[in-house]
């Protein structure tokens, strides 16, 4: 029923946890709703070069939702925020071989990455602007 990769992420989720409150350079994305059976919290720790140094997650959801968010934390590490922002849910679907009914889990993981980056940009817009020079980073 589940792909071995989903089972592996479920049994050994990568990067579980939360950063300390108020930790510098952390953007947090919380997506989904308890009523829908899925809530993902994804946090990115971004250095002043705009590179994602670390990521952490916590997920309430089915095994595929846990695996999607666990995989998302692995995918974003070492990427620039622009690169991470362009990650598509289909990459997660292909890696975890998610069936059609579980595609929404990968969509949620993509949304969580984007939400975390948006939160980071909102909080630290000045620092990022000087680092990447992109006008887009000032949004929000």
């Amino acid at each position: 029923m589940y792909d071995p990769k989903v089972i592996d992420h479920y049994n050994n989720p990568r990067n579980v946890g939360s950063f300390a409150k108020g930790e510098e350079g952390v953007g947090t994305g919380i997506v989904g709703a308890p009523a829908c059976g899925d809530v993902m919290k994804l946090q990115l720790k971004i250095n002043n070069q705009g590179i994602i140094e670390d990521a952490k997650f916590k997920t309430f959801g089915c095994g595929s939702a846990i695996a999607s968010s666990s995989l998302a934390t692995e995918m974003v590490k070492g990427k620039s925020i622009d690169e991470a922002y362009s990650i598509k849910n289909t990459e997660i679907v292909n890696e975890l071989k998610l069936p059609p009914v579980k595609i929404h889990c990968s969509v949620l993981a993509e949304d969580a990455i984007k939400a975390a980056i948006q939160d980071y940009r909102k909080r630290f817009s000045v620092a990022v602007k000087s680092a990447s020079g992109s006008a887009d980073t000032a949004k929000g």
Partner: peptide
Amino acid sequence: RELSPLYE
């Protein structure tokens, strides 16, 4: 629950 953002 250690994995659950809601429990946290």
